[in-house]
Design a protein around this nucleic acid. Structure first.
Lengths: 346, 346
DNA sequence: GACAAAGATGAAAGCGTGTTCATTCTTGAT
DNA sequence: ATCAAGAATGAACACGCTTTCATCTTTGTC
């Protein structure tokens, strides 16, 4: 209670501001609420006094009465992953501009969801939740959050996911993988690649499943052989090892399609630094995501890109719309992918 | 008020749990507070009912009365930076285990501090604040946070920083750069390097200043020439360009000391892919941080490391101690650095 | 079996804010 | 000058929880 007293002394309350400005406490509240009716000059005076006293409305108290926490929860398995950190950065910036703060929760790397974490998170009463863990069905999340909090799952699939969550209505941000993959396959085919390997991401990942499925479909459409599928987990080391196995134990390949850029880096390094093969002359490599490192000269990776800014804009728009109209019909946004051509194909 | 009603219907309150379990609301509160006195069987019964009703204590309400938000604010300029994302990830994991959630705030990349952001952040009443922006003096932060919230600034300097914040007492986590730099210089000298360049980080960065100062000091102690100092900003692209300039406009160097690993990557790529020089034969390169990418085969970087886990453990310990004893004397922890030898020196 | 000490319990007060609702003040048209 | 309509105002309540305090129950000891 010692610190309690300190804090009380340190932080000004609306009551103190009211007394100092010779107005009622209600007026102070209104001064900080733009659409409340208050004489402009009075508002200015109150805001001035508030600034002098270094006063800020207490979000906890405000949240208690309004039901809005101005907090957006993000459930993340690995902040270190370039793709995720990129996404977190952009989302936090955009949400902050709209008055929301990011509340970060980490889940285990194996994507297993700790129920206690969800319970704990709900205690903070986030206005919205963005989940980066692609294998968590929103039903699970909805159950924990009592279906009162809008949830967005960042993933790259369409039908598969919608099916898994049948019965639950929610806003969706869809990514059409087809365009980018088609462009990549056309390019590979043009350079004469015939034996294509798909270096997978996490087995449970829906994005991975959808990328693999779309690749197979596209190859079939063009009359090419089905891809050799290698297991992976989106990490550099696993991709490195898988590539070694492909060429030492297996029969190699003309081209490698990696489920993400980091995996592509692992493949490239294995080819160049351990197998003595050159990229793109001996083996062509294509990645997914277009993370910032993809343009580094050591890799200079040709990769399928989902425009980050566009995606973040769409997601923030979805979140804000849902908060303003909680009972509106579910929205759906669809984004496209395209190939970024660099030096690892031709 | 529609969503309000929904939410009310969705989230159970302590009152409802109390009624369902036939106890007083106070008992429910005690059931969730481990050190409150309550008959064990009664507690179990309450917790069981709570689970059935999917009840979680509301953190906002709890925060209001206890003065503890269980929120730790993190002020971050660039989540995408491997070093920062690494640190955020580890801190979030460790704090989460102690019952704290991470509240993320982004500041502009040029490190300029938006005062409105600080005000806004204070509204959330974080129990502690960790700032990654090395050039923000804690005085500024303290002023905004009313000196009631413990603040930790992640930086790598010692005296310089302490001087800048004279008069303010605060806990400190210090990093001794000397060890790692000395090991690196010894290694470089052993391989015959004589002309050493220092590829700087952000000009305002205290970590950068301290690394540069320590490098100069170490070179002088060993009777070596002062380093050629190049301006940088911790980014790949700037490091790349600076390295080109060093060899095309300037007279080149035997070895490059980069202020961070990402900068070292830029230097290596410029040397290998544009200047036609080989690393380490023609030019040796040393980095700072030992981020995960440093072991990727394309770089295989020799670098000075501050043990992340050790650092996070120390920081979390500091935070917890300060929260338990707000009036205790300031603590100080000091960490060491050491050289991780890989393939870019000899 | 009596008594003190310790533990368990619930009523009430309060944390800092937003929001009703009834009242007062202002404005502009007649 | 008068009146209605609208804007501005403040008292009171509510949000969901913890904590104090006084009361009641259990436990241990001689």
């Amino acid at each position: 209670m010692n610190d309690r007293a300190e804090k009380k002394a340190a932080r000004a309350t609306a009551d103190q501001v009211a007394r100092a400005a010779n107005v009622s406490r209600v007026a102070v509240s209104r001064a900080f609420n733009p659409n409340a009716s208050l004489k402009p000059e009075k508002r200015d005076r109150i805001l001035k006094v508030a600034r002098e006293l270094n006063y800020t409305p207490d979000m906890a108290a405000r949240s208690l009465v309004t039901g809005r926490s101005h907090l957006v929860g993000m459930i993340v398995p690995d902040v270190c992953s370039p793709w995720e950190s990129q996404e977190i950065d952009a989302l936090t910036t955009a949400l902050q501009a709209e008055g929301f703060a990011t509340l970060l929760f980490k889940v285990k790397a194996d994507f297993s969801m700790d129920p206690r974490l969800l319970t704990y998170m709900r205690g903070f009463n986030p206005d919205s939740v963005i989940a980066f863990t692609e294998n968590i069905l929103p039903d699970v999340l909805c159950g924990f959050l009592d279906r009162a909090v809008p949830i967005y799952v960042i993933y790259d699939d369409v039908e598969q996911f919608a099916g898994a969550a049948s019965g639950t209505l929610y806003d969706r941000l869809l990514v059409r993988q087809k365009n980018g993959i088609e462009q990549a396959v056309a390019l590979l085919q043009g350079y004469g690649a015939r034996r294509i390997a798909y270096l997978g991401g996490k087995a449970q990942s829906l994005a991975n499943a959808e990328r693999e499925r779309t690749l197979k479909e596209t190859l079939a459409e063009r009359g090419m052989d089905a891809p050799i599928v290698l297991a992976g987990d989106y990490t550099y080391d696993t991709a490195y090892q898988a590539t070694l196995d492909l060429f030492r134990v297996g029969d190699g390949a003309d081209a490698i399609f990696a489920a993400n850029d980091v995996g592509a880096f692992g493949a490239i390094d294995a080819l160049r630094h351990e197998l003595g093969l050159s990229v793109p002359e001996d083996v062509k490599v294509v990645g997914f995501d277009d993370i910032p490192q993809a343009h580094w000269k050591s890799y200079n990776l040709t990769t399928v890109r989902i425009d980050l800014e566009e995606r973040v804009r769409a997601l923030v728009r979805l979140i804000l719309m849902r908060l303003r109209a909680p009972d509106a019909e579910p929205f759906t946004e669809t984004l496209n992918t395209r190939l970024i051509v660099r030096g690892t194909v031709g």
